[in-house]
Amino acid sequence: MEILEVKELTKIYGKGDNQVIALDHVSFQVKKGEFVAIVGASGSGKSTLMNLMGGIDRPTSGDVIVDGKQIFAMSESSLAIFRRRNIGIVYQFYNLIPNLTVDENIMLPCLLDNRKPDSRKLSKIVEMTGLSHRRNHLPGELSGGQQQRVSVGRALINDPAFILADEPTGNLDSKAGREIIELLMSANRKANQTLILITHDENIALQADRIITISDGRMIRDEVMRV
């Protein structure tokens, strides 16, 4: 069953001589529980693709269908609500709210929905991230790796349709980076959580079920590594 469908996705920045085609008719599908790595050189269009899949940016043409819903047919507010309930995003630079504790940052998508998450579920996620002893700490009191684990926890809290991780290890040392990938893979394997990981690290990409290669805005390869 396809959880994500990317259809002829094109994004063009600028006009006339300044026109840059960041993404050129990219299409693929992702099945439920799949771990997909998107690789490509710097400036190849990976982040643009991620922003479009996450509904943060709008395409020049094409469509993204998440769980059977055309996300760009939605209004901006509906898309924001859809995003917080169905898509978990992990950034390279964590993007945590500095004045919220670990628990609050993880709960943020639920809090924006004016609901408190199940405390057992929250504890499970906190435990999974290995931050049980730091639940009331602020992001500024955590290491980079710990902050990124909070970010992963936040992405998982709503049982999203898929997790989008944009270079989640790019700002971490190798040990912390490994731990994050293990955390994400554990969610993928144990909870059958769909994972789309953008990386330029070949070793990480090789652990995925499938590798999509982007170059100059085009999808040049789609390799299935394991079934």
């Binding site: 924001a80 950034y91 993007n95 945590l96 709210i97 500095p98 998508p109 924006l112």
Partner: peptide, 16 residues
Amino acid sequence: ISQFGTLKCVGATKNQ
């Protein structure tokens, strides 16, 4: 503004 960006990415609406 960067905080608003994060909030928007995790699903905060314009109204929020």
